[in-house]
Amino acid sequence: MSILILGGTGEAMALARALAPDSRFAPLLSLAGRTKNPAPPPIPWRCGGFGGAAGLAAFLATHQFAAMIDATHPFALQISANARKAAAIAGVPLLTLTRPPWIAKPGERWTIVRDLAAAAQALGPKRRRVFLTIGRQDLLPFRAAPWHHYLIRSVDPPDPAFLPPDCDIISARGPFSEDDERALLASRAIEILVSKNSGGAMRAKLDAAQALAIPVVMIARPPPPASGPVVTDRDGALAWLGRLHDAKRGV
């Protein structure tokens, strides 16, 4: 059974590893291409867009995919919307695989905001040393608050046109341990952390911030899809695929 996985997340990679030895399925992992040198998955993969919902629907039909799994980043709203439209056009079952959002622990100091512009505003008028962990594509709103010093971490170097004027860049690929995050925050004298509520098990930066009494500006998670099945981990996706496979075989 041919499966198209829209990936770019740890959950997509975990699903790819689980499907690699399973002879019932022929998965293809599709990456958006935002990372220049992605870690190669253990299954066939492609990189790049499809040309919107219509292009994705045509791709599904041409290659006769029996199912599609949207395992993209929780903030990748456009590709998720295209996936829903394409699945409806092509008549292909769609599953959304998205990690659960983070929930503040007792003692954590979060300011929850609706978007990037609100996050920049929440930093306040006083100069602060800010750790931005939002990805290289979303830095432009922070140019509106140029009086802060920003530490920016991304896998690939950001576009200079997006950068706030006073910043340092760290090129690194996670996951990161809590000890490493705590050492980084302390060595750079970080006073506030900005994060998207990407969720999942890896919350080392948040635990490190709590340990150092550093407040967090948390950008709220977009609402989940209005319809269709949703699972939060690899096992849920495997169970859905198993049921779909059995149904197609008439088991």
Rank of each mutant, 00 (worst) to 15 (best):
T96L: 03
L28N: 04
A220W: 03
G228P: 08
L60P: 08
W102F: 14
L238N: 06
G33A: 10
D246I: 01
I152D: 06
N197Q: 09
V113Y: 03
E191G: 09
P222D: 08
K105Q: 14
C167T: 13
S177I: 09
A120Q: 04
A16P: 09
A189F: 05
P229A: 11
P175S: 04
V216E: 05
G7W: 01
P141D: 12
R129H: 07
G33N: 06
P146Q: 01
I69H: 01
L238C: 11
I219A: 02
W102S: 05
M1C: 03
H149M: 06
L116P: 01
D168W: 07
R129T: 02
V130I: 11
P42D: 06
G49M: 10
I190D: 10
V217Q: 02
A87R: 01
A54Q: 15
P222E: 10
A66Q: 14
H245G: 01
A144T: 10
D115L: 03
I219R: 00
D246R: 13
L31M: 09
A39Y: 14
M13L: 13
K196Q: 05
E191L: 01
L139F: 04
P229T: 03
V130N: 01
A220R: 08
L29V: 11
N37E: 14
I103R: 13
A87G: 04
F59T: 00
R99N: 02
Q137H: 13
G236D: 02
G49C: 12
G228V: 05
G55F: 05
A208Y: 03
L212C: 11
A58N: 10
G199D: 00
A104F: 06
K105R: 15
P41Y: 04
G10R: 09
S2N: 15
A76V: 09
